[in-house]
Computed example of a mutant assay.
Amino acid sequence: MTSERPVVGASSLLGEDFDWAEAIGGWRGMAESVAPGGVFVTAFLVWGGFRAPVIAAVATVLVMVLVRLIQRTPVTQALGGIFGVGLGAIWAWRAGDATEFFVPSFFYTGGYAVALLVSMLARWPAVGIVVGLLRGWGGRWRRHPSAARRFQAATGFYLATQLVKLAVQLPLYFASATAALGVAKLALGLPWFAVALFVIWRMVRNVELPEEPEDLPPPKE
């Protein structure tokens, strides 16, 4: 399954209105995120086993990259899909079990959750870092308790979304419910990220910092 890319749509946090298309990396980005996993689940339901679903998913993401190369459009997002699908394919092929296709994404989600938690414990919440970079604040927001608390809460919410993903998917994995796990992975992939980004946007959109001396415009001559 394609790996989630948290940087996709991060600029949506800056707008007065939330841009859903930007949040999912455009509708083409959405299709490219869903297609390999959808093909994997469909192939599993039709043929079963692990070879056909794995080959179908890998072929799908390779075709997407080829189309982008032919059209001379950026291939970054599609290349991210190659990494995610390729790693899952290797894992499943070595184990001889289609369900193992999803295991690498569990490590990715778990590691991401740990990173978010560490950022909160260090008082450098990840959402604050991203918003600070996008708005040109750097780390200045840390000197304003109300802004720091808002970013800490938003990061905590995003951490919770990662834990929900694991809470839903791991029981399905241990039950060897491959098709159900594939559907859950699709639903909790880019669409889930877009919903989470919308909530985070609502939490941080009104955060403003007072101007400091270095921020003031130079006096008129």
Rank of each mutant, 00 (worst) to 15 (best):
residue 136 G to L: 13
residue 153 A to V: 07
residue 5 R to M: 08
residue 167 A to W: 03
residue 29 G to K: 15
residue 80 G to S: 02
residue 101 F to C: 05
residue 155 T to Y: 12
residue 54 V to I: 14
residue 197 L to E: 09
residue 46 V to N: 04
residue 90 I to A: 10
residue 37 G to R: 12
residue 100 E to Y: 14
residue 164 V to D: 03
residue 215 D to E: 08
residue 170 L to G: 10
residue 180 A to W: 14
residue 134 L to Y: 09
residue 40 F to W: 03
residue 104 P to A: 04
residue 172 L to M: 15
residue 132 G to C: 13
residue 82 I to A: 08
residue 85 V to S: 01
residue 40 F to H: 13
residue 206 N to T: 13
residue 147 A to G: 09
residue 151 F to H: 05
residue 16 E to V: 11
residue 96 G to M: 03
residue 103 V to K: 07
residue 191 P to L: 11
residue 196 A to L: 06
residue 87 L to S: 01
residue 167 A to F: 01
residue 65 V to E: 11
residue 192 W to Q: 03
residue 22 E to C: 04
residue 108 Y to P: 00
residue 66 L to Q: 08
residue 70 I to Q: 08
residue 76 T to E: 10
residue 176 S to Q: 15
residue 158 Y to G: 08
residue 24 I to M: 15
residue 193 F to M: 09
residue 60 T to Y: 10
residue 148 A to Y: 06
residue 61 V to H: 02
residue 47 W to T: 07
residue 214 E to N: 04
residue 211 E to F: 11
residue 203 M to Q: 08
residue 127 V to L: 14
residue 59 A to I: 07
residue 194 A to N: 11
residue 132 G to P: 10
residue 168 V to K: 00
residue 135 R to C: 12
residue 39 V to P: 00
residue 107 F to Y: 15
residue 145 P to S: 11
residue 83 F to R: 00
residue 186 L to W: 02
residue 34 V to H: 10
residue 111 G to C: 14
residue 220 K to P: 00
residue 202 R to M: 15
residue 156 G to Q: 13
residue 97 D to T: 01
residue 89 A to I: 04
residue 170 L to D: 07
residue 51 R to T: 02
residue 65 V to A: 14
residue 135 R to E: 05
residue 169 Q to V: 03
residue 67 V to L: 14
residue 38 G to Q: 06
residue 85 V to L: 03
residue 10 A to N: 04
residue 204 V to L: 02
residue 168 V to A: 04
residue 142 R to D: 01
residue 1 M to K: 00
residue 161 T to F: 02
residue 29 G to V: 14
residue 140 R to Y: 08
residue 103 V to F: 12
residue 151 F to I: 08
residue 51 R to L: 11
residue 114 V to C: 03
residue 133 L to Q: 15
residue 10 A to F: 02
residue 52 A to Y: 03
residue 73 T to E: 15
residue 89 A to P: 04
residue 172 L to C: 14
residue 118 V to Y: 07
residue 77 Q to G: 06
residue 174 F to C: 11
residue 162 Q to M: 10
residue 142 R to T: 10
residue 201 W to G: 09
residue 160 A to H: 01
residue 194 A to V: 15
residue 207 V to E: 11
residue 123 R to F: 05
